[in-house]
Design a protein around this nucleic acid. Structure first.
Lengths: 185, 185
DNA sequence: CAGTACGTTCAGGAATTACTGAAAATTCTA
DNA sequence: TAGAATTTTCAGTAATTCCTGAACGTACTG
């Protein structure tokens, strides 16, 4: 590994805990991300100096995040792992997994809380707060679902547009007002 | 606390580790979020059953995330804490802090890696991968900065639009093509 | 079938992170 | 300034998470 590659791998290890994964998993991912060809578990263990079993667990973890792809090579029984080439695809995957793990459980909890009959639930103020949080998260994750479906090109265009999207929305509003409103809610 | 409130607080405690904070901090935040009035550290310690010192540390942590506001009450020397009312403001704050802690350090690392003279850096493929990741993160965080500046109303409109933004972008593209392109990059 | 080449599991030790109580620091009052 | 009220710090312990080596499982080969 070149010094730059080492720094990259090291960094992913250090950031791991902030990202909700551990050092090993972070470094394995970083190594695979940079690798020119798929690597097998022994190669990973060797290059990173981790035990074979640790690498096995790390790869399972990465598989559960759908962040690595398993392949086989002709005439070799070993399992080879790689990351997708398209960084935008990676970004989407990551976002989807984070949502599933970090947001959805909360959404369920909020939904259940709101189903509680008002009398049982008590404290009106708290219920109001719960409702507000639920609305925001619901809206944000619905938006996320939607944007997930955009192709990479459109997504990039949207991002490049940045806050200038505001002008576009204003233009749209003017047109909608002129043309009349359809639908409701 | 009503059962619903208890479940809410409990949930924030349990999710804490996934969100990169600890149980105590999560529960303190949840309690403050639901509370009808600001609470002081003793009240928090009492209601959650944590030690006074733990609450003190938790509040410091929440302050470092700018997620709580410190107030004083007339004729009372105790420090009272509350969360902002506007959930969209909270959302923004959270996003900004997450970016600062979880994204910016990586961006710096990538930037430095790209400054390395090609000969020194070695492996062209790895450098290409680093460049791709850098581009994506740079673009995404620039977009984030931009969107942060939108007022809550516009932000909500954008989210409600969801993937229908694509049509808007297409309309814009048509107009841009017809009217001619300005600027470059 | 025995032997080999893998991958996985898991008990237990290492490392890290969270929490507490006691002591110290700070801030206010008289 | 002494004293009371409050917050903060921190050393030590509890709890949790991470990592390893050894044992085990599985699938292929001859």
């Amino acid at each position: 590994m070149t010094p730059v590659e080492q720094r990259f791998v090291q960094h992913f290890g250090e950031m791991g805990s902030r990202w909700g994964i551990n050092r090993t998993v972070g470094q394995i991912y970083a190594l695979l991300y940079l690798a020119e060809r798929p690597l097998n578990a022994d190669e990973i263990a060797e290059r990173l100096g981790f035990s074979r079993s640790n690498v096995s667990m790390g790869l399972k973890e990465l598989e559960s995040w759908s962040l690595v792809r398993l392949q086989h090579q002709a005439g070799d029984r070993k399992e080879y792992y790689s990351t997708p080439d398209d960084v935008w695809a990676i970004f989407r995957t990551l976002a989807a997994e984070k949502r599933k793990r970090e947001v959805d459980p909360t959404l369920s909890m909020l939904r259940e809380a709101l189903l509680e009959p008002p009398g049982e639930a008590g404290a009106a103020h708290a219920m109001q707060r719960i409702r507000a949080m639920h609305e925001l998260i619901e809206l944000a994750s619905r938006w996320f679902d939607d944007v997930q479906r955009l192709d990479s090109k459109t997504l990039m265009q949207l991002m490049r547009l940045g806050s200038r999207v505001q002008r576009l929305l204003e233009a749209k509003n003017r047109m909608t007002l002129v043309g009349g409103r359809r639908g409701g809610g």
